[in-house]
Every structure is written in C-alpha cells, then in structure tokens.
Nucleic acid binder design. Structure first.
Lengths: 239, 239
DNA sequence: TCGTTGACTGTACGCGTGTATAGGGTCAGA
DNA sequence: TCTGACCCTATACACGCGTACAGTCAACGA
C-alpha cells in the first residue's frame, strides 16, 4: 500500500471519528506512519486533504452502491442502505461530513433525496402530497442514524454498525417504515390543526396581532404526553 | 441583562451554530460584549462553560416542555416536538450537542427515547415488536432533522426553523408518520430476507465461510446510480 | 557519469488557542 | 475612612496548530 493511500485512509478514518476540527494533520501523519511534511506534499493544505477525502469516499460510495444494486440478490425494501461493512464505514464518514457541513456532502445529500423522491413517486404515485419533503425525511432518518450512531447503539445495547445491532435496527426500520406511527384519524386532526395555525399565522402576518406562533404538529410525545405547543409568546431565544 | 447571562446566551448561540471546537472563548466574549477574562471568571474553563450551557439548555427545554404539556391546547399528534421558536432554538443546540457528543445530551437523548417508547407502547400496544428500537428511530428522525437543518432546508426551499419551512415540514412529517413507506407485502419479504441473512450469518460465524455480507434490507434506491466526482488522484499538491 | 525528478524527513515560523494572574474600579458595612 | 467582596479588564505565557521550506535519498534517462 502506497504512503499516499495510507495517508488518505488515515484521514478518512480520523475525520469520520473525530470530525475535521477535532483532527490535526500531525495525528493523520502519525496514524499513517509518515512525516508531517509528506501529508502536505501529497495533498496540500488540510482543506485540500478534506476535499480529496470527500471526493474519494463519495465516489467509492457511488460505485459500491452500483455494484450492490447490480448483483442485488437482496429483495428491495425501499430506499434503505445496505449493510456492507465498507459501505457502513464510508457512510459514517459521509454522515460526519454532513453534520460538519461540506459542499460535497451537501451535493450527495441532495442526490440521495432526489433518488429517494423518485422511488417514492414510482411506488406511491399520487398518494404522497409532498414527495420532496417526504424523501428528505427519509434521508434525514437514515443519515441521522449514522450521525447518532453512539446514542442509538447505546439505546439498543449493540453497535448498530456491528452484525447484531445492525440486524435489530434493520428489523426496527421495517416496522418503522411499514407500521405508521399515527392513524388516519389523528393525522387528519393534526392536519386541521396545522391549517388553523396557518390561517392564524397569515392573519397575524397581515396585521400585527399579538399571539405568537407556535405552530407545528403537536408536541410532546417526545416528551410524553400529547398536546403541543402552546402560546408562543415569549421573546426570542437566547440573545 | 447581567453580563453573566449575556455570556451564557452568546455561548449557547455560537456553540449551536459552529460547534464547540469551532467556537473560541474570545469569540464568545466578543459576542457578549465583555472581556475574555470575565468569561473565565464566571464560568471557569471552556469545558465548564460548555457543561453550564448543556445544563441550562436541557433544563430550559424540560421546563418548557412541561409548560407546553400542561396548557396543551393543540391536538396531540404523537411524539413530535412543538414549534415554539424558543424550543426550536434550544433544540438546535441540543442537536449540535448530540452530534458533537456530550454526556448531558446523551442523557437527554435517552430520556426522549424513553418517553417516546412509552408513548408508542401506550398507543400501539403489542403491535410493535421492538418499541425501544422503534422509539430510537423516531427520536433519530426528529433530532436528525435539526442536525441537518441546512441540508433539509435547502431541499425544501425554506428554512425549516422559519414559519413557512416549518409548516411544510410539519405536514410532510404527518405524511411520513401516517403513510407507510413500505406495504405489508414488501415488508414481509424483507423480514424473510433478514431471517435468511441471520441464519447465514450465524453459520458463517460458526465456521468461517466466505462471502462478504452485503446484507440488510436492500440497498440502493436511495442512490440510484451515477457517480459524480472523479477519483481522488492527483499528484503533489503543494510545491 | 551526471542531472533531474519525485518521494520523503526535519525543523522552524507565525498565529490563535485556552489558561493564568495581577490589577482597577465600585459599593456595602464596620 | 478603611476594608473586603465582587465584577470586570488587560496582559502574558505556553502550547498546539497549519504552513513553509531546505535538504536527503533513491530511481532513472541521457
């Protein structure tokens, strides 16, 4: 393995684990077993190195997915990522990149949403009113799981990137994607609440009525109970 | 407003926006309009300041949720967070904290999963086989949306923390949570595939069979095809 | 053989960082 | 008036960072 490849692998690994800011070029050099100067010789600045890693990982991810798709002996279960250990590793880098904010990762995020949206439209025709937002939610869930790998793994009692945890998570995903959280009744109720809220909001917008906004589909459960937001009064957040 | 509160608010705001590593104590001092020394005088080390922010935000979040719960005039639509501007701001800090990794945020994540799980069990009785994992997915989706605010907002064409984007996202969430992505047939098929995979895996585990894993519930949709960037190649960067 | 090229190392520079500490005000109470 | 407590500023220090550059060594073509 060439020194250049070792440096790249070390960078991808450390960036994925500790983030860009949390990783020094010296650490990368040490991990790759080369001198600090060689990193710069091969990749230029740290930002250049990061861009090279982005390009490498994303390209690799695309190619691997194609392969998986082609041999696809697995029954397609919708836009869910596969379990290739390599893919999972690369996806972890991707997730970190998205969380840290990188143009290349943003582009791939957009592409994922695009193809998920296509999938949704193909399989659910006109039943979904806002396929773009629906697809965004789907991608946010999948990428979010990678970003929050540590927390989710702790909840499940097994690393979701390991065999056991991944299996359990995959089954849970099937439940999550096939058994709706909300029944039609409460969804309809919530839609109505949103419509009401929008009217209030536009009224408020037109004339400076008091009553601040607070709008979304209910709250709480995450917090337990139900109900949702209440007033909005209150002033701004922190500042 | 006391200088101490200004410092705390500035820290929360900057930490939420740029992350812990991406924010210097000097920037916080400047944002709060105080000297560097005063930050240290009031909060001690940077890590202490971060812990104080964690405690403040999480406590505030809990109290606000309680208030929201109590007056709750909105119809409950399940475990979805409300739209209080303040809550959203605090949630953004929370999301960043989760992504960056903080014990306090981890604890709150666990608590959110716990109450979501309770909600699921209460409303779906025995219909969900793995309520813990199901609830984790729910929380990962919600927090993931906050973490990926920029990307999701770009997809939707409006800031999901602003009135318009939030409304659209809320409606999409209702679709996402009430219209299942997978029908029973394909879910059943995928379950079977997972079972088969598990058997293969345990066999492989027992005796070292070849064939790498590539498992999971199918792959690809999300990605479709096509690669985008070119290799990582390129020669010496810097002269 | 010589000269060139490219991989690779070692060392140094400037800068921003978190941390430390001495000191200047102001105000309440003895 | 003095004194001590506080809130607050200013300055300094050591350190790790990204960056820059001179130089060593081996391979290779003329």
């Amino acid at each position: 393995m060439t020194a250049r490849a070792r440096i790249r692998d070390a960078a991808v690994s450390l960036f994925a684990e500790r983030g860009i800011k949390g990783t020094s070029v010296r650490e990368i050099a040490a991990e790759a077993g080369v001198s600090l100067g060689l990193v710069r010789h091969h990749f230029g600045s740290k930002e250049d190195l990061r861009a090279a890693c982005d390009a490498y990982v994303l390209d690799r991810l695309m190619r691997l997915k194609e392969e998986i798709l082609l041999d696809g002996r697995q029954p397609g279960a919708g836009p869910m990522p596969g379990a290739h250990p390599v893919v999972l590793f690369l996806l972890r880098y991707f997730a970190r990149s998205v969380a840290d904010g990188s143009p290349a990762a943003d582009a791939m995020f957009a592409e994922l949403v695009g193809s998920s949206q296509r999938w949704v439209q193909e399989h659910h025709g006109g039943r979904v009113a806002d396929p773009g937002a629906y697809a965004s939610l789907l991608v946010a869930t999948e990428v979010g799981l990678l970003v929050m790998r540590a927390q989710v793994s702790r909840q499940l009692g097994a690393d979701i990137l390991g065999p056991d945890g991944h299996l359990r998570l995959s089954r849970a995903k099937l439940e999550f994607y096939s058994k709706p959280l909300l029944d039609e009744g409460s969804a309809e109720l919530a839609y109505k609440a949103l419509d009401r809220l929008e009217r209030e909001h536009s009224v408020r917008r037109r004339s400076g009525t008091g009553r601040a906004a607070s709008g979304g589909p209910a709250s709480g459960g995450a917090v337990k109970g139900r109900a949702e937001q209440g007033r909005a009064g209150r002033g701004g957040g922190a500042p």
